[in-house]
Design a protein around this nucleic acid. Structure first.
Lengths: 226, 226
DNA sequence: TACCTTGTCAAGAAGTTGCTTGAATATGAG
DNA sequence: CTCATATTCAAGCAACTTCTTGACAAGGTA
């Protein structure tokens, strides 16, 4: 095998890892797994695919080294191999958002207009938290909250928010967060809260970016992903 | 179109960008373009493919927003859209090297054993440069040197090194660098220099990482990529 | 033991990707 | 204006990808 063939094989190897991310359903899986580990059944429901197909996609991700598994009884839990994988996913989203024109229109179609949606930076939230001026609400599914959340945050999954509105204080600002910059839950939450006359903002990005910035987190279950 | 379909479309959009990188030849193109802009003919020779096929792959990269073009006479020059694309490429290489087992074997087959190859960090090189203790040699093709190189580095492309060996000082340490951690030129240069009794080390990573770290660079031609 | 739950694997239909060849287009030189 | 050079585009075929269905395997439970 010549030098050219060896070089081609090496770069085919890098391309294999890109291939693992080169499918919308696998991209969704990575986005969910960046929140913490989940079992196959649960992931299948999350991405709206059959268990067989979800299992197939997870095997592809595992084949490229992006995810690893752990068995607990009859369940098999998948998680990202390391925080580097979340970094790679963030870099991909970043480039796509900045340079791939389609993303703008697709994001607007899925998330709606964001003009009226005030955002708060991680730094500002950190300062406000220290002064206890603010209520932080985690609107992701509760299993994700349990795997890890912003310290002091309260869990009110998106689908329960309307019912539990009355338990939120009207005199303090509320900050909602979810999975990341392209996650719809916090957007919907902020819009709902503002319609009901509460002061609400969305945290820029989501939990994975907060954790990546080494800001304080806590978890309910033992956190196997860190 | 329901929420699920909209979400799927958005993630298909992210996957499109991954797809653009999900081919070995396109990965090689990104690696070369991270050094600076190049025209199609030149890129075709660099990746060992026909001009038609190279042009096709470049159109795929452009379609995903990863590269942009500029015309100069009959030539069309391609370059990465922004440094973010180089960051994404670095993140992909990083994950592949850390978690995708195949890469180890493929890299060893292409680069040879690196055990005996002393590396120097960017920080250490920066310090040594300030004291003028060291000779830095850029062993990439000269067009890449011209597009941008480490300040004070001397250009001796890999294929001319054996002939120009005698012009290097025997009393000072020599540091060779090239395109990045998986580039073979600097490895070969360090091995050759050491066999000839010179003190030589390889810079960790390569020029794109030096530039990304905002360390001092200079260029011969006007640098359109920055 | 038999049976249930959870997840994986194999085969196959429909669509997509990669490379080659040859024609088409755009710019510059004479 | 004509010709040469550089690049792109279109057609076509082989190889791969995605998702479905149904069979299989591994672990837990009665």
């Amino acid at each position: 095998m010549g030098e050219r063939a060896k070089k081609d094989s090496l770069f085919d190897g890098f391309a294999d890892v890109a291939k693992a991310m080169a499918n919308g359903r696998r991209a969704e899986l990575i986005d969910v797994l960046a929140q913490g580990e989940r079992h196959v059944d649960d992931l299948a429901a999350e991405i709206g695919q059959s268990v067989a197909n979800t299992s197939f996609h997870l095997r592809v991700l595992a084949g490229a080294g992006l995810v690893v598994t752990r068995r607990a009884g009859t369940r098999i839990y998948y998680r990202l191999t390391s925080p580097r994988v979340a970094d790679l996913w963030a870099a991909l989203r970043d480039v796509a958002g900045a340079h791939y024109d389609e993303i703008d229109a697709l994001a607007r179609a899925y998330l709606g207009r964001r003009d009226e949606l005030d955002q708060i930076t991680r730094v500002e939230l950190m300062e406000r938290l220290a002064h206890g001026e603010i209520v932080v609400v985690d609107v992701r599914p509760s299993v994700e909250y349990e795997a890890g959340h912003i310290v002091g945050a309260r869990s009110i999954p998106s689908d329960r928010l309307a019912r539990e509105l009355s338990t939120l204080p009207a005199d303090r600002e509320i900050v909602a967060y979810c999975r990341g910059p392209y996650c719809v839950y916090a957007d919907d939450a902020v819009r709902l809260l503002r319609r009901r006359g509460l002061r609400a903002r969305r945290l820029e990005d989501g939990f994975p970016e907060w954790r990546e910035a080494a800001l304080p987190t806590e978890s309910t279950t033992a956190d196997i992903t860190k």
